[in-house]
């Protein structure tokens, strides 16, 4: 049977995140693209905040309370993967989502306080003193490595699933999941609400920090 697991916002968010991240990766560290990097970074911040809000008020499948499980559940899942058919992210994937969101958020937030010692200061650089700017700038250069590692793991995992017959990439496009076992249809919130929220977040972030 086919079950609609991802609402329109989650799917759009995922691909916007990919494109924005690619843009940030490309423009990062390049002095000629610093203004574009800042703008993309602010958009990234809006995306992340909206996803986090959606994790509390959005579709059942997108809510953190649905998929984030404690260590016991993770252990149980690892021992016997067939025991449960998770509605959305499995217990391991859930922590990977949390880790990635955390690192991306840390990256976006530290970026606000950076100072390149040449000609760029992040929008909030003046809030803290130079030593803190310096430290956060260093973190901003280091966190990216952690993000790239998680992205690599994510891509490898998708290939492994593909080899075993599960097409996750397509699920993130159509939102539909093919399953042999009966799966309760999660309560979905219309994606338009998510995009509305995103627009509001973009607006205040841009007006404040842009």
């Amino acid at each position: 049977m086919k079950v609609q697991v991802w609402d329109g916002f989650i799917r759009g968010f995922h691909w916007l995140l990919l494109v924005t991240f690619a843009g940030l990766w490309y423009t990062g560290g390049n002095i000629d693209f610093i203004d574009q990097h800042e703008l993309l970074g602010l958009f990234m911040l809006a995306l992340l905040l909206t996803r986090i809000m959606w994790g509390f008020v959005g579709s059942e499948s997108a809510r953190f309370s649905t998929f984030v499980k404690g260590p016991v559940s993770v252990w149980r899942y690892l021992r016997d993967k067939s025991a449960t058919t998770p509605l959305t992210h499995n217990p391991i994937g859930a922590w990977s989502v949390i880790a990635l969101l955390t690192l991306l958020l840390a990256q976006a937030l530290t970026g606000l306080f950076t100072d390149d010692a040449i000609f760029y200061q992040g929008p909030l650089a003046s809030w803290v003193d130079n030593d803190v700017n310096r430290l956060l700038t260093r973190y901003h250069k280091q966190i990216i490595d952690g993000i790239l590692i998680l992205v690599a793991i994510h891509i490898v995992a998708i290939f492994v699933y593909r080899i075993r017959g599960t097409a996750l990439t397509w699920t993130m496009v159509s939102g539909k999941r093919q399953t042999s076992e009966p799966l309760a249809q999660p309560k979905l919130v219309h994606g338009a609400w998510g995009y509305g929220l995103l627009a509001v977040n973009c607006l205040w972030i841009y007006l404040w920090l842009g």
């Binding site: 002095i31 000629d32 390149d116 010692a117 040449i118 000609f119 310096r134 700038t137 260093r138 250069k141």
Partner: peptide, 18 residues
Amino acid sequence: FMTVARNCQQCHQGYRAD
């Protein structure tokens, strides 16, 4: 102006601690 900025950056990378 950008050429000067690039000169700053190129020297900082490698010769100045982060």
